[in-house]
Design a protein around this nucleic acid. Sequence first.
RNA 1: AGUCUCGUAGCUCAGGUGGUUAGAGCGUUACACUGAUAAUGUAAAGGUCCCCAGUUCGAGUCUGGGCGGGACUACCA
Length: 1137
Amino acid sequence: MVRKNAQQPDLYPEYDQLHLPTIDREILAWWDANGIFEKSVSSRPESKRFVFYEGPPSANGMPGIHHVMSRTIKDLFCRFKTLQGYRVERKAGWDTHGLPVELGVEKQLGIRKSDIGVKIPVAEFNRLCREDVMRYTHVWNELTRLMGYWVDMDNPYVTYENAYIESLWALIRMLYDKGLLYEGYTIQPYSPAAGTGLSSHELNQPGCYRNVKDVSAVAMFRIKRDERSQFLFVDNADAVYFLAWTTTPWTLPSNTALAVGKDITYSLVKTYNVYTHQIVYVVLAQELMQRYFTDEGATMPFDEYKKGDKKVPYREVLTCKGAALEGIRYDQLLPYAQPKDGDAFKVVTGDFVTTTDGTGIVHIAPSFGADDFKTAKQHGLGSLTLVDKQGKFTEEVNDPVFPLQGRYVKDAYYTEAEKQAEFETQKRILKEKNIIADLRSFMSVDDLIVLKLKLEGKLFLTEKYEHNYPHCWRTDKPVIYYPLNSWFVRTTAIKDRLIALNKTIRWKPPHTGEGRFGQWLENLVDWNLSRSRFWGTPLPIWKTEDGSEVKCIGSLKELEDEIHKAIRAGLMTGSENYRNEKGEIELHKPYVDAIVLVSAKGQKMYRVPDLIDVWFDSGAMPYAQWHYPITNEDVFRQNFPADFIAEGVDQTRGWFFTLHVLAVALFDSIAFKNVVSNGLLLDKNGNKMSKRLGNVIDPFDTIRNHGADATRWYLIRNSDPWENMKFDINGLQEVVRSFFGTLYNTYSFFALYANIDHWKPASDKLTAKGQLQELDLWIISRLHTLLQEVTEYYDQYEPTRAARAIEKFVDEDLSNWYVRLNRRRFWKGEMSEDKEAAYSTLYECLITVAQLISPIAPFFAEWLYKNLKGPGISVHLSYLRVADTKLINKELEERMELAQRACSLILSLRKKEKIKVRQPLSRALIPVLNERQKNLYRSVEAYIISEVNVKKIEYVDDTSGIIRKKVKPNFKELGKRAGPKMKAIQQALANFTDADIRRFEQQGSYTLQLNGEPFELQPHEVEILTEDIPGWLVATEGGITVALDITLNDELRHEGNAREFVNKVQNLRKDKDFQVLDRIKVSVLKNETFARTLAAHQQYIANEILAREIVLVDQLSDYDEVEMNDEILKVKVERCS
RNA sequence: AGUCUCGUAGCUCAGGUGGUUAGAGCGUUACACUGAUAAUGUAAAGGUCCCCAGUUCGAGUCUGGGCGGGACUACCA
């Protein structure tokens, strides 16, 4: 953008055109050179803080446009609070640990997790992770700068640094001391083939869930006869069974319970076991009977059943609720081993039991299912884990007949050769045992167990079942659920406080806090901290080998002390490899693992090899960013809790949760008072942006091409941040054109005339001076209303409303009404009190708008402010004033709105009649119902007259007798009283004549007869409108009616001609590149009409076009032809020297 | 599968506590304006307010049930 008047630095800068990216560059350079960000913090008092926490991004991926979104939100509230005089420090941070980093490095090296420590030393692997994680730091820094996100990138917290980890250790120690940290085990996805647990992240890799066919079985669990179960033993039945379905028969040896639904209805059914042909009694959910029995079976006589029949007779003997089955015991199905850790082999109730599949009775193997595990815990049930970590049955599964012991529970774990060998074994054994003479194909353990059950009369049904089953994304082998040791934070112990304190947080939007987050808290489980990876914060726990003694280390100093003890005890030499170049203990694997401590009883203690969940890293940032609780107690206290944080909704159960948990667990406090969770950014068609689809918006391109402000403004104004947003570049361009363009034009207009008049504001105080006109008072009133609204919106974290309110003001009020109606005041004549008022009013509006937009559009706001105030002054160091309610005049705003709407109506009439605005008309008519209304119009009459170019406005009221009125119910008022009678009243009012209405108005009430019943209408219960003036050209909208007199006389025609002529000459001046202030001479070839027009309006014409003289001539050369309504004139325009 | 959320014009979005003719901007079409001019204005066309039922004198708005999109959590016999 080239400044046109660069030679005159004391003038307001004027430019050729608006180009936002150029403004970005200039302002960025200026900010950098003058340290504006630093000043915006340091200029605010330490005693008045607004605390913001930056959620650390991971720099091992490239930033996307959605980061611009969340960072715009963060930035704008921080800037706004600065504007209000708060000190807002913003410490940047980097999230550096975690699986994505490791996976990235694995990919680079072409290795797998199992190779780490084998093909590449752990130390080397972690060194690569450390380098890799900061790979795109410079890109992030650049985006941060370019988008105008003010955050202190020079002193970020970095989660892999020793000091940060030390803080984490101290916090873990605090949890440990509070009894909130414990070791336990849970059922986790586990890949025996890879020998490792899998995270949910890994399980959600594409292709992990596959449809596979497995053997399913409905097993029969024989009920123990006792008082509880007595009612099931009818007809002298000696064997009654529960039916339970499973798709993983290999878990049946580990069964320790059955679960039923409390409110589900179960049936006791008499039928045949189709394999043994014995009559049996079985229990299953009534709803699911049709799955196993055909209708004919219900009536089929029992003695007609023959071996192999498709139809099986059955009878429903009795029904009961699941609750009645609770506590009933049964014989262990496959008694290879006995649980030692609790009760077993009984029926419990569970919410998770449904009747969509199976039998409505769920087989519970606590070691191999999350629900099972939970149920077992709730009911104090014992467990059996008859599978080892390699995925093989343990030695305990020692079947006298079938080869199960030591066999893989999933045949996919066998190699082909192994499988073949196993097949031979099976064939031999089954032949020896006289079960299958000549086995044809390999049998999985599922097959074998099903066969065993069949032979033992414990199988009701088996079939192939296709379902979705997770597979290990590295080995392609099925995953099993398996109990693994982990360290947990006992979040369930503080659940009530988590919920109670959450209610004191303001969530934007509220439903994220109450719903998504609240729900999550209600269903809280303990937080599994353990991760069995390499690059992360090590768990600071050392244990003796027998597990009897545990130490949780809370600081480096404590660790040093413990090492000294260990050295004295001779367990360490001190020369082990656990220090980095600086001589500090390196708090990463494998270094910390080289440290062996000594227990109180003199035992060796080794570190538990686990790392902790990376979310602990980020959730601990309120403390660890200051190296608290090791040091900086005071800094921490000043900055806790945060006033404001913001991230995407995907962080609800991530960062927001861990922040909350740690604050509540450690300090019984919230970590943040206000949180904005923004939605997703989708492409313009509503699809997720992905590299694969090629619909990713590059934030750098967007900012480079359209400017940071346009991007920010668009993101904020388009929809509430918490909605998912469709990003459309066309919408962004529209923002540039309509908002920034309009504001720029308004400024250009101001600068153009203020420079001509050499106008400067008298003082810094933003108060209009001079002789204020009604329009000035009006725009000032609107400005203060805006100030009030926008301040409130920002304070309530409603940025979209703020942006839209500003847009509306700039476009509709300032540009399209105030400036448009006032143009003349700016360019007419010499400086005057009136002109002074106009300048200072417009100036004040622009200054305030610059401030109000500065949080969202920091660059353009700065540019505008500096243009108005001078090159050295920053809007971001300014203070936003509080709206002055004394300057707000609602009645004036209402009047002006009336004028705007009346103008719009009259213009639409002119339009309809094709009469241009330049043609004056004699009068407009406005019907008024009362004095008040008339006075309202009167006060803005002048604007209407000049805007629509009529000579006068006449008001017609009742007395004129020419307006037609209409009455309709005021539904809101009348509805309260009339209720069901509304319809009838509406009907009655529609039939009112003018006379009825007049009588109503005169008497102040009206009694209707509704079906013979009187109903007295009050004036406030109806609306009386003028609708028509018969015989006139009328327009009506929203209760306003106007009529226009379109008859023309000569006088009006000549005036119209004069204006038309002026307009054409002005165009000629422009075509000829005359300066605004150049004087001209106009020669016109003789023309009758024009001669008369000139005679009547010479003064006016000359004034308008700055003509020294206007002459009619007989001959003219070198002329221009102009159209003056119906006449074509030959005109010569010359500049006077 | 559960939880949350969204569904209004071709597109992007407004529509406190229910009030009868549902709005704006963009886009389209037509026209106008012209000392802010690569700006601006006016108007027209464009809607089963996702569907169904209910509450009510009256439902885009409240209730219930569906359908569809999205997010998160889970993956279960």
